[in-house]
Design a protein around this nucleic acid. Sequence first.
DNA 1: ATTTTTGGAAACATTTTTTGTTTTTTTTGT
DNA 2: ACAAAAAAAACAAAAAATGTTTCCAAAAAT
Lengths: 199, 199
Amino acid sequence: MDSKKNEIIEKAGSVFMKYGIKSVTMDDIARELIISKKTLYQYFEDKNDLVIEIIKNKTLSDKCICDDTSKNAKNAIEELFEVSKYVSQMMSGIHPSIFFDLKKFHPEAWKIIYNHKWDFVYQLILQNIERGISEGLYRNDVHKEIVAFFYVSTTDLIADSDFLYKNKFTSDEIFKENILFHLHGLMNEKGKEIFNQII
Amino acid sequence: MDSKKNEIIEKAGSVFMKYGIKSVTMDDIARELIISKKTLYQYFEDKNDLVIEIIKNKTLSDKCICDDTSKNAKNAIEELFEVSKYVSQMMSGIHPSIFFDLKKFHPEAWKIIYNHKWDFVYQLILQNIERGISEGLYRNDVHKEIVAFFYVSTTDLIADSDFLYKNKFTSDEIFKENILFHLHGLMNEKGKEIFNQII
DNA sequence: ATTTTTGGAAACATTTTTTGTTTTTTTTGT
DNA sequence: ACAAAAAAAACAAAAAATGTTTCCAAAAAT
């Protein structure tokens, strides 16, 4: 891909994440990137196209990071812990208004995120559970599809919950607790010993 | 003030803070509050009026909390520490897109915040410095106007800085460091001893 | 040095979205 | 049963943004 186009995708992504997708106009993007709107439209058909490209770029990047993290993990626990840490940190940095705007004004881009979660992340958790059971670190009576469903669903709940706005916790703290809770639900005794060496 | 009106102000404020001021329409507000738009317009002239009332309510509430905090503080250091803790926590919870939207679409409400900072908060810091000097806890060669200016300015910088988006710190962490830095810039030796008893 | 091409800035016409208002329907209170 | 109030739906107007075109300046090519 054209490196100029890629630079626009990265930078525009940052501006949208910071100030909101609906609120930030193509005029604002051009101004922030110090290019003219005409130049911007040479690379992207319209605003929706730009937003979709940004989301595609982001989900692809997430996949790569998660794949690397999985490969480098010594066992299922470390894999789940490190992947979850990455996902949590990333989600903590995304304000709920971003998802609100995507859903309302860019349904196609929203669909990409939705599919990313239910295809990629869900599968990743499923495979992690299989790995954990075969490594003898997870309880072998775990119903893996339900747990994977629970994992993906609670990530959404936390990101959009009013709980944050009514209490003094940061989303970071809540995500952290969620990781711990989830891991403790999966591990057997042997797994817990391994886990205590990681922390 | 009418308690129904106040309830709308509180709840609408929460919705705007969560999903963005520009993005959230009056239709959305009515839906979230489970009232009709017609009812909403019985209490507020227009969207701008609602936004202004929300901001007024918020800055007034901030004033009360800061006043209480100041009154209850045993000395200037505790006062500044507790007020700063409150301000930091509050600012950490506000996404930059909120300020972006206020500035762009509701300049009158933006002005209220701006004045709140440069009238109320600035004066509060000035008075705290005077208090600290007269209590013998701050260095008495502090140039109080410049320090107060610096305090108010860095709060803005942190809230809007790209630094957050490029690094792993949370705004919470950065605000915390800022409080410590600021206090250490003000205190004399006696003050530092008092401070170490608070932490 | 001159000409051509490219990109920026500004202006513009069109589209989209939201606003604020009005009408219709439903619910509530007496 | 009737009147009043609130909700839901429809509506006209306004505002904002989009995407396109024009004009101009700067950069590149000759």
